[in-house]
């Protein structure tokens, strides 16, 4: 039974990582380093959670929960996209340094979130609670509530964001590898001059890459807040940065990113379940040994990054502003 719980929680936490890392992938594949994912997640989560809260306050949210959840996701996505345009404008139009622009957005987002949360909810209300009805339960689908392995695995924590992540992953694979636009996007991240020479608008492709990262990052922010479970508190606990690591670990490829995000999430969950899992070492002589497990995903990432660094293959032109006049 506990295995089902762990797997279900793993999927729950893998969803935001997957979405955001896919977003980062689109941006970097088009040639823009998007270190602002953390900030984009925060803005997306802020807007989505505010919307959900208002539907709850008005008292109509619970009537058609999944419809409002869908609207919340769209709002998160659009908010994330608009925020990401600040990065796109600075780094594409003004050819500014992409890492610095991203750092500025990462600083701005949590501050903005705190201010908006206070403005919307009154002083000292630092958490936006999200309603309980957004979870997809078996009753809501008309099934009897089962307690067998499969229903615990699937329905323990099933949200619309999980389903959206699956759809978006499939779409990302098709878009990136099977469409003309996807090919053009990738070309702009590898050799923008060559792309330009055959008539591809590099600037437009890069705007699109960043916009996609904003869309996915925004939804990912909402998905993280749902997974964290305690409401929106103006931060996403470094998941934006973790998603960057997932993206690199996944070698800028959608399916590898899926694997990497599941791997990260599993370690996170093992960390928080460590006390209840009989087969894990307990470190009884050490106080607050949960920190050991909390450190694990980061340490494992470092080891993997070092081991795979020879094979790691970043988009060639990422981080370099495209200048039409350049060679």
């Amino acid at each position: 039974m506990i295995i089902a719980d762990i797997l279900s929680a793993t999927i729950l936490f893998a969803v935001p990582l997957l979405l955001v890392a896919l977003g980062g992938m689109f941006s970097e594949r088009s040639g823009i380093v998007n270190i602002a994912l953390e900030g984009i997640m925060i803005i997306g989560a802020l807007c989505g959670c505010l919307f959900l809260r208002y539907t709850e306050d008005m008292g109509f949210g619970a009537d058609a929960p999944q419809l409002y959840m869908l609207i919340a996701m769209v709002i998160s996505a659009v908010a994330g996209m608009l925020f990401s345009m600040l990065l796109a404008f600075a780094s594409i139009r003004l050819k500014a340094d992409q890492v610095i622009g991203g750092t500025a957005l990462n600083m701005m987002a949590p501050a903005l979130a705190v201010i908006v949360t206070w403005a919307a909810q009154g002083q000292a209300q630092t958490t936006i609670l999200i309603p309980k009805w957004i979870r997809i339960t078996q009753e809501s689908l008309g099934f009897a509530t089962g307690t067998d392995f499969l229903s615990r695995l699937v329905f323990k924590s099933l949200y619309l964001t999980t389903l959206a992540a699956i759809v978006l992953l499939v779409w990302a694979v098709i878009f990136l590898y099977r469409t003309k636009t996807g090919l053009r996007l990738r070309a702009c991240g590898e050799h923008p001059q060559a792309a330009d020479s055959v008539g591809i608008n590099v600037y437009r492709m890069r705007y699109m890459g960043v916009a996609l990262s904003g869309l996915l990052g925004g939804v990912g922010g909402l998905a993280y807040t749902i997974a964290a479970g305690s409401g929106f508190q103006s931060n996403v606990a470094g998941y934006g940065f973790l998603a960057l690591a997932v993206m690199i670990f996944g070698n800028w490829k959608p399916l590898n990113i899926l694997g990497a995000s599941l791997f990260f999430a599993l370690f996170k969950i093992i960390g928080s379940y460590a006390g209840t899992l009989p087969f894990l070492p307990k470190f009884e002589s050490i106080k607050s040994s949960e920190y050991i497990y909390l450190m694990l995903p980061y340490i494992v990432t470092m080891v993997v990054l070092i081991l795979t660094s020879k094979k790691s293959r970043a988009p060639k032109a990422e981080g370099i502003p495209y200048d039409k006049g350049g060679r």
């Binding site: 690199i248 607050s288 920190y291 070092i306 660094s309």
Partner: peptide, 29 residues
Amino acid sequence: CKALFNVNEVITSIMFNWITMYAVNLTIN
């Protein structure tokens, strides 16, 4: 990591920010 394995220093630094925080908390406790 950057000099020998060519791992981007931004990613390594981000990872070690978290590792350090947890390690320091663990040690002080």
